[in-house]
Simulated scan of single mutants.
Amino acid sequence: MGQLTTSTRAGRVAVMMTAAALTFGVAGCGFASSEATVIAEINVSSPQLRDEAPLPADYSCKKPPGVSPPLRWSSEPLPRAKSIAIVADNSAPSESAVHWVLYNIDPRTTELGEDAASSPPDDSGQARVTGGKAGYEAPCSPTGNYRFTVYALSGRVDVKEGAPLPEILKKIADQTIARGRLTAVHIE
């Protein structure tokens, strides 16, 4: 690998800080607040992924085109939910990156098929991820911890087209009322 440029280093730092902020914000951890926010749980599954098992090569850069995996989710009734967001990231500290952010999914939706990133649900949006691509950027690191997190939100993610990733992630964190996660431990 070549040397990192200043902008690449700054981008990685921004992604790590954003991921930390999203984690703390969604978990209800606040440095200035003593009240924790209660976050309901969403059960996330997939016909192709198993929690804590390897990410199948079809959903990685190892087997082009590396499409987004099918996902399903369920929870207790969430009458306050106004939209759903999905964030796929690599949580390995040395290689953290965001691979997919799909937001403003209709709250009645409970699953997405394989390659939903190429044909996203009506009225949804996809963020430009760490690598600069809008949509699903197939993971490449064989040792990553790839997390597919589903968030139920109290509102829509209201951003202008092309909004920066940190802004979109913050809006997701600020509106989260429920979440669930499916984690692949590396690429098969």
Rank of each mutant, 00 (worst) to 15 (best):
S7I: 06
R9V: 14
M16V: 08
A20G: 05
A21W: 01
L22P: 01
T23A: 09
F24S: 06
G25P: 14
V26P: 03
A27D: 14
A27W: 12
S33F: 14
V38N: 13
A40W: 08
I42W: 06
N43V: 14
V44T: 08
S45L: 02
S46T: 03
L49N: 10
E52H: 11
A53H: 13
P56F: 06
S60N: 13
K62G: 03
P64C: 00
P65E: 10
V67K: 15
P70W: 04
S75E: 06
P77G: 00
L78V: 06
S83K: 10
A85E: 10
A92D: 14
S94F: 02
S96F: 01
S96R: 03
H99M: 14
L102Y: 06
L102R: 09
Y103G: 01
N104V: 00
N104D: 07
T109W: 01
L112R: 09
E114L: 03
S119I: 07
P121M: 01
P121I: 01
D123Q: 14
G125A: 09
G125R: 13
G125P: 08
G125T: 04
G125L: 08
T130C: 09
A134S: 15
Y136L: 04
E137W: 05
P142L: 04
T143K: 03
G144C: 08
Y146K: 05
F148C: 03
V150Q: 04
G155R: 15
V159T: 12
K160P: 07
P166Q: 00
P166E: 01
A173E: 12
A173N: 09
D174W: 04
T176G: 03
A178D: 11
R179H: 08
A184Q: 08
E188I: 03
E188Q: 11
